[in-house]
Design a protein around this nucleic acid. Sequence first.
DNA 1: TTACGTCTGTCCACTTGTGCACATAGCCCG
DNA 2: CGGGCTATGTGCACAAGTGGACAGACGTAA
Lengths: 258, 258
Amino acid sequence: MDARISKTTEAGSRPANNLLRRLSPADYALLAPHVTLDVAGPNELLYSPGDDVQVVHFPCGPSLATFLVPNEDGRDVETILVGREGAVGGIVSEGFLPAYTRICVKFGGPFARIHVAKLEAAKMRSASLRNIFARYADCMLAQIFQSTACNAIHSIEQRTAKWIIAAMERTGDESSVPLTHEQLATLLGVGRSYASRVLQSFKAEGVLDTRRGAILVRNLDGLHLRACLCNDAVKMHFEEVLRGVYPTEETSPSSARG
Amino acid sequence: MDARISKTTEAGSRPANNLLRRLSPADYALLAPHVTLDVAGPNELLYSPGDDVQVVHFPCGPSLATFLVPNEDGRDVETILVGREGAVGGIVSEGFLPAYTRICVKFGGPFARIHVAKLEAAKMRSASLRNIFARYADCMLAQIFQSTACNAIHSIEQRTAKWIIAAMERTGDESSVPLTHEQLATLLGVGRSYASRVLQSFKAEGVLDTRRGAILVRNLDGLHLRACLCNDAVKMHFEEVLRGVYPTEETSPSSARG
DNA sequence: TTACGTCTGTCCACTTGTGCACATAGCCCG
DNA sequence: CGGGCTATGTGCACAAGTGGACAGACGTAA
């Protein structure tokens, strides 16, 4: 079909996804025969509202997926980012239901995929596999809850800083985020000119620099200072809930930062 | 222990909760021996962040529970309402994990309860039971996603109207909501004076009246006109996802409205 | 019936964010 | 090297929401 697809994934060389890497060898062996690995480009749509959810996508490496809620204006609102700490598609619903949101590749890169039916069949055979996916589902829920609260009470400035940090933690690139002001504004649900102004104020304070199509971070601590704590709250929940579950050297979204 | 608790719940007289009423007789029979029914008063805390989630609570009749996300200021932000269309506690996580949010009784009334372990054991024995809870989990997720988007882009006026409608649909009382301006402001995450002003403008337009501690709806259509469509979007997802699953005369949050 | 505590309506000065407009800068492509 | 597209920086008038203050209304309890 497609030269990019490599059908085989040896257990010895698991995809660079923390969820898959957390699985015990026995659990991963249940999934491995059904896991495929390929590359998705930015803005590629994984699901649209109403689509039958049949495949779970695991972002690997610097890939990033995002949940977009369609709006009456046609403006989609970005809700949560999912990177190599997790997966999208049928995590909570267990698949075979119409998607509610749009799910879209934000930053392109490798994705591991498995058919929901195969995953569910494996979950029926292994309590520990079931357990780890339930734990991740809980973390994802926490992430959305926190976003809801964040959108209700935090300033655009705080949310801008938070978003840049969250994106960097997931891609592993601690110095830049490939994003235009327009894109940033859209995902924050604000006007473009205001997003530009916020970035300008950060720039004036030496926190970051702007390039055409990218944001370069100059002072990560300064950025943390200007962000709300939502990101950290979610990170703590990830660590608490997934701690001790077949621990690997990598922990959840925070893996890149100490 | 407590005289309010009635340990027995005959299959013939199921608690007034749509999720429980949707279960097939066989599935309900698996749960019935473990279901208790009692009354909770307003502001009663069901879970606080970090609590071990062990019990699922099903609001019955006009009872309403709500998920609150704690904030650095000590101000909790209200995220989603759950009434007789659903349940709270371990729905997504399948229990035995620390709660992320505070879960609180908003409007007091009867609640059916079951220990998560009993529910999970029953789910292991019945695919259809598993299926219906996965479907509800998906609906709850949709609800939170929509809230996230709503908080990002809709005005306080729209959200106020939406919230009043959502509360009425769940309690079944189509004419009033027992809420002070202060409470309304808190749950919207805004200042009290602004909430009062919004209510005043609605009042001036003949949409509602205000009483000490309550909001009286005078013109439901007018209220719908002033609300964003978030409520309807979620309702449609409920109907689509739960349609045909052991249908009863009652459908999801919308049951009270045609 | 009165007293008290809480809820409500409204004022004001101020901050945050909107939406549009337009000049300019960066960059890819021929 | 230069044209043209898109991204960026900024100005402005306006709308939305904040937070504190305070008078008065309501309703419960004694």
